[in-house]
Simulated scan of single mutants.
Amino acid sequence: MAPKDEGGCYRREVKLPYDSWRLGFGTPDYMEVWIETADAVDVRDRAFRRAMSGIASTQSRKNLKGNPRGWPQRPGAGAGKQVLGADLPRLIYVRWQSLAEPQTYEAYIVIPESTRRAMLKGEKTYCAFDDKWITGYRDMLTVGLAPGGVTRVWLMGACLAPIDVARVQGTVVKKGPYGGKASGYYRPPNEASRAYIEKYGIPYDSW
């Protein structure tokens, strides 16, 4: 079950060095995902329901030259949104449809205290895009979603190396898509993803 909303007014106790942090989602190549909901809970136990939903970032090359095995050393930010008004994250709940299988999963991702400390730490870093040195912050949580219910989480920031946060094994949602309200229907993967899976299968052991 997803975390419930907390009522009442809200005031941040510790001022963050940025206006908000970002929650993004991606998948291995060809392994499309539909996110039913991604809810964030901050350190003050405030729940931000549907902080993200919809399609996770996926590359599906038509020439089948993509490689879905494993995770990249420097993952992209993924498809996502800013979590406005939130303090530092304590928990991420995500429920998603793995269209490659198809199967529905959910996972509770606990954010370690060390990750929150890193989100507050500014680091001098060189940005090649701007050709200048900046004080950067890791203000992006990126979640990778893979078949078999595997989740992988990184903490990222512009021009800063990503930090590996966690690997969490999700569980099957037995009622299926949308808690059984979709009559078991899964949207089929796109043409390139279908072609890749039919030819090479799903590399479950690589994540």
Rank of each mutant, 00 (worst) to 15 (best):
Y126V: 10
Q97G: 09
I55R: 11
P162R: 06
N63E: 15
E113K: 11
P28F: 05
G70E: 05
V173T: 01
V165G: 03
T104P: 05
T104K: 02
A107V: 04
R187G: 06
A2Q: 10
G180H: 02
A166W: 03
K124I: 08
G201I: 04
A182G: 01
A79Y: 13
A158W: 09
Q103Y: 06
K62I: 14
C127N: 09
D87M: 05
Y30M: 01
R22Q: 14
L99E: 02
K124H: 04
M140Q: 14
V14F: 07
Y204K: 00
D39W: 07
L91I: 11
V110M: 09
Y204H: 13
N67A: 02
Q169D: 05
P188N: 07
N67K: 12
P68Y: 03
N67D: 15
V150I: 10
Q103G: 04
Y93F: 15
R152D: 07
G78T: 11
R167L: 08
E123Y: 02
G176N: 02
K132C: 14
E191G: 01
A182E: 08
T142K: 12
P72T: 08
V172G: 00
R117K: 14
G144L: 14
G136D: 00
S57E: 15
W207D: 08
E191D: 12
R167Q: 14
Y137N: 07
Y108M: 12
M52W: 13
D45P: 00
L16F: 04
G179S: 01
D5E: 12
T125A: 12
V153D: 01
E101T: 15
A56V: 09
I55Y: 08
P177Q: 02
W133S: 08
E191N: 06
G184D: 08
Y186T: 00
R117H: 12
N190F: 04
G85H: 04
W133M: 10
G24N: 01
Y200M: 12
Q59M: 14
L23A: 00
R116Q: 14
L64W: 06
G85E: 05
S60N: 13
V153S: 09
G144P: 06
G66M: 00
W21Q: 05
T115V: 15
S193Q: 04
E32I: 00
G201W: 05
P75R: 10
G8N: 07
W133Y: 10
L16C: 06
G24I: 06
K65R: 15
Y10P: 00
M119S: 09
G148E: 10
A146D: 08
A56L: 04
G78H: 05
E113T: 12
W21N: 03
E32F: 01
P28K: 07
L145P: 08
D29R: 00
D131R: 10
P188F: 06
D19H: 11
A47W: 07
D19G: 12
V14E: 15
Q169F: 00
K62G: 08
A118Y: 04
G66C: 00
P112D: 12
I55P: 10
L160G: 06
M1Y: 04
Y10G: 10
V94N: 08
A2H: 06
P189I: 13
V110S: 12
K181Q: 11
N190R: 12
E36D: 14
R95F: 05
